[in-house]
Write a protein that binds this DNA or RNA. Structure first.
Lengths: 116, 116
DNA sequence: AATATGTACCTTGTATAGCAAAGTATTAAA
DNA sequence: TTTAATACTTTGCTATACAAGGTACATATT
């Protein structure tokens, strides 16, 4: 069963996930399952059906690249890493994120009606 | 022409707008055009085609109510105000927003790979 | 050898949010 | 009467997340 709180979080996350992926990969390489674990550790739950298409989209945009690597316990893993173009996109997203945080702070703080 | 920065901001805003509307209306009544002005003042640009359906959605969910009021300069205005249910939803969204801000902070800070 | 389990990657169909563009209605000024 | 300004509304499109299911590989179990 999906609670209202789940839904609220899901809706609020739209578009921000792409930013999260770049944040993670800016720090280190990772493969899909490990990215999900890392997001889960940050209380940002994501399912596979969301993440895989997102990674493919970002790869096709030139923001990410990947390499295959054998695993000692299971099938090979697709390790993604951020590209130069990805870092540029990340910089834009950092700015956009800061703007949004500021905007919310402004709206929360300023309870003064606009005079028209 | 739409720049990449515009698109980045647009995508990152998905789902957060609903929260912004409740934040604004928690402070004071407002009608659509004045809400757009207020969002613009907070650097959160929104167009009519986005806002009107959103207000109608939130009204249908019982989060908002409205009343008509004559204007001295133009057609009558639909003044929206937040309901009790809307305030409860706002409280949930406050929590979800804080969670998301924390999650991003965690992802930005923690550049330690997950060990699997 | 055959089967089951765990890990990892991928695809399809659906719901929904935001946006561009166009439309309707009211008021007042030229 | 026409034009402009203000305000509300609708339609069609694109993109994002999700639920659900599928494929492939490696290892352990029978």
């Amino acid at each position: 069963m999906e609670t209202n709180a789940d839904n609220v979080r899901s809706q609020m996350r739209k578009g921000v996930l792409e930013y999260c992926i770049l944040c993670i990969l800016a720090g280190h390489e990772a493969y899909a399952s490990s990215i999900i674990e890392e997001l889960k550790a940050a209380n940002m739950i994501v399912v596979e059906g969301t993440l895989y298409p997102l990674l493919i989209r970002q790869k096709n945009q030139g923001l990410l690249s990947y390499r295959w690597e054998e695993s000692t316990q299971g099938p090979p893993r697709k390790y993604y890493c951020i590209t130069q173009k990805g870092r540029e996109q990340l910089a834009e997203m950092d700015a956009a994120w800061q703007d949004m945080v500021s905007a919310i702070a402004t709206l929360k703080g300023g309870n003064v009606p606009v005079q028209l």
